[in-house]
Design a protein around this nucleic acid. Structure first.
Lengths: 293, 293
DNA sequence: CCTTACTAATAAGTTTTACAAATAAATAAA
DNA sequence: TTTATTTATTTGTAAAACTTATTAGTAAGG
């Protein structure tokens, strides 16, 4: 039993004529006759009684009709669904992004994507940088956005832009007058940062380590939002990715470039090799790269 | 998209190897490769990423897998169901029978049928003779059992046996002493029969008509059971098909052949031409003929 | 680093299937 | 009885599906 035979049977049983069913199927009448015949042979009995003047369904044909209709509908739905998926008219992608990016630049890219592919559902998991990489590695998400990780193994990294770290101060802080702030000047004050093993904390520590500056942490938290709040409440100073500039200012903090050393890190998309991505995810990758080009 | 391709996809995605999937499908490896390739071309994208050493599903392939599994299962179920139907391992038939036959001889045939085809459901509609013919004509049932109808049009009649009419009398009736009873003798007493237009009534009237005997009906009813009861209660005498002999005796009546004229009518199966019957009904027809041969 | 072993893709040739055109057979209507 | 109409059969052809043989690519082992 194959699709063609089922289609043939349905066409004949609906039109009650081999000739017109053949036309409907863009097929010659003898070809259709053979198709029905082979279906009957396959199933083991007659489905249609046919004289040259009259077509009728046998009781078994009657029983097949609703079954055939259902099968064909299911088949066509499945085929359509897959075609739509490949044509980017259906699907869902999930992006894991570090919260700072998710809250700042990501929305613009998603708006662009949605404009091009309105039928693809997009979900965002805002998780810590390290979790982003893990989620991509475990195939929990197709795309991750984070600082460039040190051990990619067989993942790809597509840089979007380079981020620097900035100091954030509470209002009316002594250092507010300076255009740029050096690490040594900054660390005279209570320092607030993320808890280990966040990637921001690790980057700061490894960068300072090279210059011999020692980091004394007064307070730490899990989320940059919390750090920002602590700063604006006057509990101390902090260094955060420039990504958080807008958010920090909104929280009432002062932002200044931090130098000596200036810390720069690339932010980008982490994913499986491009060939392993779904069409929808590959398209999202393109949109991300284009949006921040 | 066709069945073969879906089977091929499932085999590969389950074994994760073209070679072993090909073996499983009794197919050469290149044929399988081409099948997958054509499926991918049809749907518009890759379903499997394959190197010479490793096979993996694309996200779209992942989406197809449960769909393919479901489609194939539904397909095979449908095919099996139809094959079973033709192999008489599944199905249902309904027989319309006049009540006298349904209550006397029919059960034996149904027992025989059920012994041969235990998976076919059999239902019986015990309705008046004329209704039997109508139900067959309207395709409400495939088989009907009744007296031979006068106007078959394009229905077939397969005689099972010839029934005669017998007189039934209450106990201690003056006519009880006679071996056979003539109509003229019988009609000296109150006569009970079925209401018009039952076939039994019609047969009696038309047979008597030919011999010039006039029928005076004292009581009439719709069901032969009722007539039998009325007789055994002493309300009068009646003439019923010999089929009802057993039932009448059980009701406490006396049965005697009725003659001058002797009324004989063939009882048989009424149905569409044999080619239009379901396999299950055709088999039942055979069993009926064989049982009463 | 090269070789070996293994796996899928490709190429070439053959068989099978599917199809259309022509024709035959059957049946209802004129 | 003839005619018109419809399905079945026949025949030849083109397409497809398949197999075998070969190639190419990849991971593991020496």
């Amino acid at each position: 039993m194959n699709i063609k035979q089922v289609r043939a049977f349905l066409a004949v049983s609906q039109t009650m004529s081999f000739a017109s069913a053949a036309t409907q199927l863009h097929l010659s009448q003898p070809a259709l006759s053979l198709s029905i015949k082979s279906l009957e042979e396959n199933l083991g009995g007659k489905l249609l009684t046919r004289t040259t003047r009259h077509i009728a369904l046998t009781p078994e044909g009657e029983a097949l009709m609703p079954i055939a209709r259902r099968l064909l509908a299911q088949w066509e739905n499945a085929e359509d669904e897959m075609k739509q998926r490949f044509a980017l008219q259906l699907g869902k992608i999930t992006i894991a992004s570090m919260p700072s990016f998710a809250a700042s630049l990501l929305p613009k890219a998603i708006r662009n994507y949605h404009a091009s592919y309105p039928n693809i559902q997009v979900a965002i998991d805002d998780v810590l940088s390290d979790v982003v990489v893990e989620m991509v590695r475990n195939n929990q998400v197709e795309l991750g956005i984070s600082f460039e990780p040190s051990n990619l193994v067989d993942l790809s990294f597509h840089p979007l832009y380079e981020d620097r770290f900035i100091a954030i101060l509470p209002k009316n802080h002594p250092l507010e007058a300076q255009e740029t702030i050096s690490w040594s000047a900054l660390l005279e004050y209570d320092f607030i940062t993320l808890q280990r093993p966040s990637s921001v904390r690790t980057m700061i520590e490894s960068a300072l380590n090279k210059t011999g500056i020692e980091l004394n942490v007064a307070f730490d938290a899990h989320q940059l939002v919390t750090v920002g709040r602590m700063v604006s409440e006057g509990m101390g100073v902090a260094v955060v990715p420039a990504l958080c500039r807008q958010q920090s200012i909104e929280q009432g903090a002062i932002c200044r470039p931090v130098i000596e050393p200036e810390i720069r890190r690339r932010v980008g998309v982490i994913c499986q090799p491009r060939s392993n991505l779904s069409i929808a995810a590959a398209a999202m990758l393109d949109v991300l790269i284009e949006t921040y080009a």
